[in-house]
Design a protein around this nucleic acid. Structure first.
Lengths: 342, 342
DNA sequence: CCAAGTTGGTAAAACGTTTGTTCCCATCGG
DNA sequence: CCGATGGGAACAAACGTTTTACCAACTTGG
């Protein structure tokens, strides 16, 4: 664990000044040096195993070379997908990614201050969940740093990037309609969250397009997790008349919903068709394999990083929709033609 | 986005020197200052919204205040659990976590150099997958940084932390034996990976304890993902005689295995009992809900961070097993009493 | 032969901290 | 009355970079 060589060590070995080494190694073409000198410097750097000191460079350049990424639940595969995209974009552009958890940050002011303080990160990506502290923390961060909300509409004046949730919802609902369903329920996420609202809007719009009235008792919103999906589906199954199909606003919720249907003895897809927004590897292997609408989550992460690095985040001032690639319907085993009254 | 105040600004406002401000704000009790001076300094800092500059501090202290965490697949819920634990421990101890992807690092030497170079991180956690580049990269990192392999045995001289896989395997197998099964197959992960080897060892040992011979054709190893589980189970189901129970070395593999059984018309648990290592939220809602053995993955992440921060990583020189809390059997719906010959 | 330009570099400041050392002044013991 | 002590604070160096400004030695044109 020997102390790594710095510029001065390289300079001494090559018999030149520190400043010359810096310029040559950083590929500064404006500097005038003999080819043989350049080669000597490079050789010295190589021999000593020189690697630039991150903190020193960050200090001098007033650029951390890092981006912060805050998520509120890593075990959610949806978020993992966003992280992966952000990670790839950051690495490709020579930046590192600093990961943190929203709930932990909310409970630890010092950690938050450290993260958004000067000299740590050059920009912040926030994948919240609509918790009350999200707005406060992101607004505070935005005072000091380029900040971007991810998978959300713009809140508290902070720019945001999101997906075309309404279109995804319409695609899913239209699939059900195409199969002959007219009694279609909506199972959402946390009430009031804009994700569920936008997907509900798509659901309503698509039904209207086909002249199908919306029944209030077939709209249930609980939370973004599987237990909520279980409870929500249980509630839907207590309604009379029963719907013949359910549009679920999130694949995680759908996992719980499928379990509830199974326990209630309702067969999917024979008795009830189910389609959900977002795809995840494990629902493709479920019983039944779930029909889903895939959205470009990875692209969302990539784009967010790119905008932050390009200082372009104000373009998303009022919220910006990533709509390519377009939402894609993946038909699997949880949706089925409506066969008429049972 | 105004430039944040530095120590000098605070010093001027309080009418004292920079060094005094630094000492007072860092709570240095050795410095002698009048209480009124202290208060004046603190007030000035508060009014100007002073927050220390991360890079400057890192440079001066020769401590980055950050730990690197490299994982090889974020969408794996097992890894998410480890990350969560590491994240919590790091935040609690005032460190930030720098996340990176093993495969991306392997393909991008510059990114790797930047990550492990001086002034970025004080230590490295590596959650690999047994890829060939893992050994090389971790060995290189270990030359410069305290490095710890996570969920692996010690490799290439790099210290490692792992869970009690053998005990977990024995617990799972014993559960099957207790249910009356004697024809128990093993479905593992990537052949040669030490994770699958240790779990296989537990399987063999536990069978031996009960005087049950091991049948070679009932041991199948493929990969650590669901498609491999599907293929592996399909292979097992082509054997004659059929086993009455399968111990699956990983919950992700088990998801694919269950799908294969379903498609083959083999009922779980009536025809075949299945138990897997590791727990994940979505298998609790599956059909059937999967019986699993939970291991303290979060604790693994926490401990790794703690050891790195305490400079204790050499204690794990030859590999160290985290065995508390103990593996826990979660009996759900995928295991069933053996009812005798079918 | 000399001024001007070019070549090949060097010196030094600055980024914001932390910390070992020094300095001034008042008080106190003798 | 004088040296020692200690309280209260300032000075200055250092961490490793980057970058602006500068300089010495040649070369060249007239």
């Amino acid at each position: 664990m020997t102390r790594t060589a710095n510029l001065q060590a390289v300079a001494e070995r090559a018999g030149v000044s520190v400043s010359l080494v810096s310029r040559i190694l950083s590929g500064d073409d404006a500097v005038r040096a003999r080819p043989e000198t350049r080669e000597r410097v490079r050789a010295a750097a190589r021999e000593l195993g020189y690697r630039p000191h991150g903190a020193a460079r960050a200090l001098r350049l007033a650029k951390a070379g890092a981006l912060g990424l805050v998520v509120h639940d890593m075990s959610n595969p949806i978020h993992a997908e966003i992280i992966r995209g952000a990670q790839a974009a950051a690495t490709a552009r020579g930046q590192v990614l600093l990961l943190s958890d929203a709930a932990q940050l909310a409970g630890n002011p010092d950690a938050f201050a450290q993260l958004v303080g000067p000299g740590r990160i050059d920009g912040l990506l926030w994948q919240g969940s609509g918790e009350s502290y999200d707005d406060e923390l992101t607004a505070r961060a935005a005072e000091h740093l380029p900040t971007l909300l991810v998978n959300s509409r713009s809140r508290a004046g902070v720019p945001a990037l999101r997906l075309d949730d309404e279109r995804a919802a319409r695609l899913a609902v239209r699939h059900l309609v195409d199969l002959g369903h007219r009694d279609i329920a909506y199972l959402g996420g946390r009430p009031g969250a804009d994700l569920t609202e936008r997907r509900h809007a798509g659901y309503v719009t698509e039904l209207a397009t086909h002249g199908i009235p919306v029944r209030g008792e077939w709209t249930v919103e609980r939370e973004w997790d599987a237990p909520a999906g279980y409870a929500g589906m249980t509630e839907l199954l207590s309604e009379r008349p029963l719907p013949t199909a359910v549009f679920v606003a999130n694949v995680v919720v759908a996992v719980g919903a499928l379990a509830a249907a199974r326990e209630a003895g309702v067969r999917v897809p024979e008795d009830l068709s189910v389609v959900a927004v977002h795809d995840a590897w494990f629902v493709a292997h479920g019983a039944p394999p779930l029909t889903t609408v895939r959205l470009p989550l990875g692209r969302l992460g990539e784009t967010a990083v790119a905008m932050l690095l390009d200082g372009d985040e104000s373009r998303a001032g009022g919220g910006l929709v990533i709509d390519t690639p377009a939402p894609e319907l993946l038909v699997r085993g949880s949706t089925h033609t409506y066969e008429g009254a049972r």
